[in-house]
């Protein structure tokens, strides 16, 4: 795709996104790109920027904003992840994140559905049919294995890549995969007594992972435990350990409940334009070739 048409399509998409959030009375916020410590997750590596880091997501700042009392916020901006280069990955990419105070992952699921339907109309593309699957049910159907009962991280990732994604590609449309094993909760809250699951969903469009969302974990102690657990796993693989963001943990204690989602804007454009690789929608990709 030539530079001009890629930029014009992106302009249309950003206008459509801002229009949807403005109509839904969200406030657009800006948060820092350069951080003293990035959000520590098990498998996400931040890029250094001098003696600081580039953000991998605006998530922790958004929760601090919620703690300050704002109820509906969103941000569209660049995020950075080290060593992620491929057909569907680029170390510098555009992320849309939005959060609702006193809400759950189901509220932001409705947001995602409405937003994507509107953007499809904006691009004169037929809106996708939306499907919903629970992790337990879909894994049982595809593999006969329930990862909520006996988790195995390697197997879980492999099934996602080698069976779930092709299944969603064949199905077409948009698929929400929800209720993850607690071991794959990331920053989502866990619920249930017998078989605990995390209130997390991922949205796939034509088999391409587009968005990730949670009923946010708002318990600072549990959040600290998870950070420490990830630090331990990262240490065992010789990955950088990031200091814990204490300002974020302090803010978390002021939030009762929240729902939030992060959506890859470049991949959304890929789908809206019916393209196959980020090369087609990122006009200046040569830095990472």
């Amino acid at each position: 795709m030539e530079v001009r048409s890629a930029l014009e399509a992106r302009d249309q998409l950003l206008k459509g996104i801002r229009s949807w959030f403005s109509d839904a009375a969200f406030v657009e916020v800006e948060t820092p790109l350069v951080l003293s410590t990035p959000c520590m997750e098990e498998h996400i590596d931040a890029m250094s920027c001098g003696d600081r880091f580039l953000r991998t997501s605006p998530e922790l700042y958004h929760k601090r904003i919620l703690a300050g009392g704002m109820k509906k916020i969103y941000e569209v901006g660049r995020c950075f992840r080290a060593d992620e280069v491929g057909r569907l990955h680029h170390p510098e990419y555009t992320m849309l994140e939005w959060y609702r105070l006193d809400a759950t992952y189901e509220d932001v699921m409705r947001d995602a559905q409405s937003l994507i339907t509107k953007l499809a109309q904006h691009f004169s593309t037929p809106p996708p049919t939306f499907h919903t699957f629970r992790v337990k049910d879909l894994f049982m159907e595809l593999t006969g294995w329930n990862p909520l009962a006996s988790f195995d991280a390697d197997r879980f990732d492999e099934v996602l890549c080698e069976q779930v994604e092709p299944y969603f590609t064949a199905l077409g449309g948009a698929s929400f995969l929800m209720d993850y094993p607690k071991e794959a909760a990331a920053l989502a809250r866990c619920v249930g007594t017998k078989e605990i699951h995390a209130e997390r969903w991922e949205l796939y469009v034509n088999g391409v992972e587009l968005a990730n969302a949670y009923s946010e974990l708002t318990d600072p102690e549990e959040q600290r435990n998870r950070f420490e657990q990830w630090a331990g796993k990262r240490a065992s693989r010789n990955q950088v350990i990031y200091p814990i963001d204490e300002a974020f943990l302090e803010a978390l204690s002021h939030i009762s409940a929240a729902g939030g989602a992060a959506l890859g804007v470049d991949r959304l454009l890929l789908w809206l334009l019916d393209k196959d690789t980020l090369d087609d929608v990122l006009p200046f990709r040569e830095v990472w070739k």
Binding site: E42, E84, G86, A153, D157, C161, A184
Partner: peptide
Amino acid sequence: FEFSKPGKGQALYR
């Protein structure tokens, strides 16, 4: 060669 990374999961080099 394809780089893939399921949401929040580990990088897989297929």
